[in-house]
């Protein structure tokens, strides 16, 4: 099973991870195709966040975690890479919008660039504007770039966080339930935005919302109790799932 028109940029092979006592995810094998959106769905506590955090080694920031197996980014094992370098290529957006509270809107987007150093001859202001446009936020904030980021609404803050992640030009963007703290309108905006971003980068998204997965993703993985039960094209997963447990979950027959 593969995507003929693209290639697998990120891949988990035999990936297990846990928090000290036992594994939270077990033996996950999964491909993430370049310039496609992959959704990870499953009931609460099944290990979606654990899996997505492993993909840019953010799980290491929680003391006592362990991991086995391989995650390969363009065929390089990320566990042998410098985590700082890795995270510049594999960005992350979290469940709750977390803009830097002490900084302005502009500084928030520029933060990663200031850390990593500006590439090419583009100016900071240009990159900030481009990133805000990509995140479909520029028109709403262009007159108040120097205001505190916390003055924005929740949905705007989340798009600001996406802009912040985009500014360092990652190859892969990981989103862990990016819409769960937002209302339907803000959610729709983010979904639209993800579909636009798909031209430029690979997106991996955890979601609780099956309609959302069906609407935006090309590929879907269904997890249950730490295992990847089924992985396939989104339309196939939602119309003709091969595993009865997937069938139960997507039809809402799950406890």
């Amino acid at each position: 099973m593969s995507d003929e028109r693209t290639y697998s940029i990120l891949e988990a092979r035999g990936l297990s991870a846990g928090y000290g006592s036992g594994d939270a995810i077990r033996n996950v094998n999964m491909h993430f195709y370049d310039k496609r959106i992959t959704a990870i769905i499953g009931p609460s506590g099944c290990g979606k966040s654990t899996l997505i955090r492993c993909l840019n080694r953010m799980h290491e920031e929680i003391p006592g975690t362990q991991v086995r197996g391989v995650v390969a980014l363009s065929e390089r094992n990320i566990f042998h890479m410098d985590p700082v370098r890795l995270r510049r290529q594999v960005g992350m957006v979290f469940q709750r919008p977390n803009p830097f509270p002490t900084m302005s809107i502009f500084r928030n987007v520029a933060a990663g660039l200031i850390l990593n150093g500006l590439r090419g001859e583009r100016s900071l202001a240009e990159v900030v504007e481009t990133s805000l446009r990509q995140a479909a936020l520029f028109d709403e904030v262009k007159d108040k770039l120097d205001q505190p980021a916390l003055n924005l609404s929740g949905g705007q803050q989340q798009r600001l966080c996406i802009a912040r992640a985009l500014a360092v030009e990652p190859k892969v963007l990981l989103l862990d339930e990016p819409c769960s703290a937002l209302d339907p309108i803000a959610t729709a905006k983010i979904e639209e935005l993800l579909l636009q971003l798909k031209d430029q980068l690979t997106i991996v998204m955890v979601t609780h919302n099956m309609q959302q997965a069906a609407r935006v993703s090309d590929w879907t993985g269904f997890m249950l109790m730490g295992e990847l039960v089924e992985f396939g094209r989104t339309d196939e997963i939602f119309t003709t799932p091969r595993d009865p447990r997937t069938q139960d979950y997507i039809t809402g027959r799950f406890g």
Binding site: E61, V84, R87, F94, F100
Partner: peptide
């Protein structure tokens, strides 16, 4: 707050 630190780390800090 932990999420703030994670935001910075995820940017490659």
């Amino acid at each position: 707050p932990r999420p703030l630190k994670e935001a910075a780390l995820a940017l490659g800090a």
